[in-house]
């Protein structure tokens, strides 16, 4: 959404127009959902949190001063929700099962059996996704959040540094190490793919 349209949408939402909230949901929903899935490891929690963040948005939109970036503001709310959810849950459910919903929205078992995406590709995608979730789980919480906020919220390193109240250098060092760990996992999966062929 271009900045001018976004400003108009925010004003309309503040005026209480239903369609403006729907437009915000359509514009930011997919990225917020991806962020929640990777932050909690649960697609069910991700959808619940997406609803939750939209409800918070309705209540807190009058506080938004339009000086900062809207995305950053929304993702700050989202990251607070994730932090609260993790604190409450204590245990992050990062495992998937065949009964679990696949990233495509279908049941994973059905995907493998060929009713969703082609069985082999679906299974492969799930394996990589699962491996990535496990690698994310092994990261410390700030590093994981920094990587996810950088990717999904498109935050600058300075903005991330403000959130975590630390120097940019520290943020970049953590992101660098985290990305290296995740890349290693992906490369290992690529190699196992090459081995199968």
């Amino acid at each position: 959404m271009d900045p001018q349209r976004l400003r108009a949408t925010i004003r309309a939402a503040r005026a209480g127009r239903e369609e403006a909230y729907q437009e915000i949901l359509a514009a930011f929903g997919p990225r917020l959902y991806g962020y929640f899935v990777r932050a909690t490891g649960s697609r069910h929690d991700a959808e619940d949190l997406l609803g939750e963040v939209m409800l918070r948005l309705v209540g807190r939109l009058p506080e938004y001063d339009e000086k900062g970036r809207f995305e950053q503001w929304v993702f700050r709310i989202a990251s607070n929700l994730v932090r609260d959810r993790i604190r409450r849950a204590k245990v992050r459910p990062m495992t998937s099962s065949l009964e679990a919903e696949s990233p495509g929205g279908g049941v994973l078992g059905e995907t493998i059996c060929g009713r969703g995406r082609p069985a082999e590709a679906g299974l492969r995608h799930e394996e990589v996704s699962q491996a990535l979730n496990e690698a994310l789980e092994r990261l410390d919480e700030p590093s994981r959040q920094m990587v996810l906020l950088r990717h999904f919220a498109e935050m600058s390193f300075r903005e991330i540094a403000e959130i975590f109240q630390c120097p940019i250098g520290t943020v970049l060092a953590k992101v660098h190490r985290a990305l290296k760990a995740l890349r290693t996992v992906l490369e290992a999966n690529d190699e196992s793919d090459a081995g199968r062929l």
């Binding site: 997919p30 959902y33 991700a46 990233p103």
Partner: peptide, 13 residues
Amino acid sequence: VGRALEVPLPGGA
């Protein structure tokens, strides 16, 4: 890593 992190939104969500 960013490409791998992407998660498509399920239909109906």
